[in-house]
Design a protein around this nucleic acid. Structure first.
Length: 542
RNA sequence: UGGGGAUUGGCCAAGUAGGUUAAGGCAACGGACUUUGACUCCGUGAUCAUAGGUUCAAAUCCUGUAUCCCCAGCCA
């Protein structure tokens, strides 16, 4: 499709400025996830912005795992993140780990110590917090702040050598305890954690904090434009302070933008992890989650996600995107790519009384009327078929365009049928319809003498293949509570020729929307379909 | 009684060295078409948070006010 590149935005203007002024010849961006969970569509937005920007201006983009806190991280996550980025269709210029720079970071911290710009603080966490002051109360300097450079060199070296307990000491930057920006009140730059790191093993027992590590990582890699989300605006002064005082040659520039928020879903890693850990969902790739792996399993395409992110744009205002927008781009992308096929997700048996029960015929059906290149297929027809329960009603409302007693409708790709008799069980449930068909009305015959009361889909009963259908709804409702009906499962039938469908194959089922074969639960002889998105307003009665 | 951001139609979002009827997308609502109530096609909405000011002229400049978001992890 003719999607527009990201609309013009403030980040582009900054880049163009920096390029035109000669500040940079090439730009370099980076995507710096912490490997502490699976990435979601919000991360995808950041990935797309970073890669698209670099591509548009002839630069490059690095992937860097910001693994400065071994307590929360795991290799499982680094693998899933790489996999998801590739699936989105991006290739990073080079791969890095913040932990690759631990030696250099330590040396740079020592530069700070030697300049008298960092000190070892022996205070308890509680004391540090107390001395930091509050939003309206200024912070106060403690006695450790006055330690000599020699003592600090010695103490910091011992910290690194593992002579102290976790939490007993920290290294702090000496900036300004009286700053109105709390983040500048002598931020902690190293903490002690005797914990095995997933990349560096037991080499280190002190780990750098984000505020210190991130600007150095960017500078070391020669990142020119370091994009992050709005909550880091307050951190920009620290970012610049470390780049300058650690004598970094390269001077990266931090630019903040609003994170993606969407209606009816959960976009916080913490909450997603909770849903996974408490087994409320199937795993990080549950089709109801906005994780990349969940969206992929559900059947969303990378193209659709990219088109969506580009359409949403980039700005600095906190916004809540209507998830209808995402659904739109998924339908748009699938429209010409997926075959239209018939599936009955809530079957009602129909016997065609004037069709010979020993007879059998094959009808030609187009795979996609909007994309003739997809060709045609042959589908069986006989005296026994299934139609959708919802397509029959005993008392027809005014604008009902489907079947009811006495009415005639077209079976898609086949004949007109007319309902003559309704069969119910002892509970009054409709279990079968007796209909007659009109051979004159065969699809493609050009029959025009009568107009049917609509067109409905069906599958031939004797050869139909059983399948399970999973219909998803928002994981949370309007009140932000967990939606207990976020998954509805039904059992029905699909066309015979779909029995060899492969996981992730996508189809449009008439009136029900787009479906993908589930990649986890579809096994030999068992077909499971995830509904990707419903068709727009498909069942609404005007 | 701190600091940093934001505020353009229901949801996003262009537009900011002031100057014709304030782009576009999503949603909604009409109508046409239709062998999917889909698709497609046509049509419909804002004076730019608010109050003043500067100007021949302001969403764009100035001043005040309101509302929302972020910051007091040895998380990122």
């Amino acid at each position: 499709m003719e999607e527009a590149k990201a609309t013009s935005n403030f980040i582009k203007k900054i880049i163009i400025d920096d390029l035109e002024s000669g500040k940079h010849k090439k730009i370099t961006t980076r995507f710096p996830p912490e490997p502490n969970g699976y990435i979601h569509i919000g991360h995808a937005k950041a990935i797309i912005i970073n890669f698209d920007l670099a591509e548009e201006f002839g630069g490059k983009t690095n992937l860097r795992f910001d693994d400065t806190n071994p307590v929360k991280e795991d290799v499982e996550y680094v693998e899933s993140i790489m996999n998801d980025i590739k699936w989105l269709g991006y290739e990073w210029d080079s791969l890095h780990y913040a932990s690759d720079y631990f030696d250099e970071m330590y040396d740079r911290a020592m530069i700070l110590v030697k300049k008298g710009l960092a000190y070892v603080d022996d205070s308890t966490p509680e004391k540090i917090s107390e001395d930091r002051g509050t939003l309206t109360k200024t912070g106060i300097e403690n006695k450790y702040r006055k330690r000599s450079i020699e003592d600090n060199i010695d103490l910091f070296t011992r910290m690194k050598n593992g002579e102290y307990e976790d939490g007993s000491r920290v290294l702090r930057a000496k900036i300004d305890m009286g700053s109105p920006n709390i983040n500048m009140r002598d931020p902690i730059i190293y903490r002690i954690a005797h914990k095995t790191h997933h990349q560096t093993g037991d080499k280190w027992c002190i780990y750098p904090m984000y505020d210190f590590a991130h600007p150095l990582e960017d500078a070391i890699e020669g990142i020119t434009h370091s994009l992050c989300t709005l909550e880091f605006e307050d951190h920009r002064p620290i970012y610049d302070w470390f780049v300058e005082n650690c004598d970094m040659e390269a001077v990266p520039r931090q630019i903040e933008f609003a994170r993606l928020e969407m209606t009816n879903t959960v976009m916080s890693k913490r909450k997603l992890k909770q849903l996974v850990d408490e087994k409320v969902v199937d795993g990080w790739d549950d089709p109801r989650l906005p994780t990349i792996s969940g969206l992929r399993r559900r059947g969303y395409t990378a193209e659709a996600i990219k088109d969506f992110a580009r359409a949403v744009g980039v700005s600095k205002s906190n916004s809540l995107i209507d998830s209808m927008m995402l659904e739109h781009f998924v339908r748009e992308d699938l429209k010409l790519k997926s075959p239209r096929t018939m599936a009955v997700i809530n079957p009602l048996k129909v016997t065609i009384t004037n069709y010979d029960e020993n007879e059998f015929e094959l009808l030609e059906a187009e795979n996609n009327q909007e994309n003739k290149e997809m060709g045609t297929r042959m589908i069986p027809f006989s005296n026994e078929i299934y139609i959708e329960k919802e397509d029959f009603i005993e008392e027809s409302p005014k604008k009902w365009k489907r079947l009811y007693p006495g009415a005639e409708v077209r079976l898609k790709h086949a004949y007109f049928i007319k309902c003559n008799e309704v069969i119910k069980d002892e509970n009054g449930e409709i279990i079968e319809l007796k209909c007659t068909y009109d051979p004159m009305t065969k699809s493609g015959s050009g029959f025009k003498e009568r107009k049917p009361n609509g067109t409905i889909h069906w599958v031939e009963a004797k050869k139909a293949v059983p399948a399970e259908f999973r219909l998803y709804d928002s994981i949370i409702d309007e009140d932000g509570e967990l939606n207990k009906e976020s998954l509805v499962v039904t059992h029905g039938f699909v066309e015979e020729n779909m029995k060899d469908s492969k996981p992730i194959d996508k189809y449009q089922f008439f009136r029900h929307g787009y479906f993908a074969v589930d990649s986890k639960d579809t096994k030999e002889g068992r077909l499971v379909f995830n509904r990707i998105v419903p068709l727009k307003s498909s069942y609404r009665m005007k």
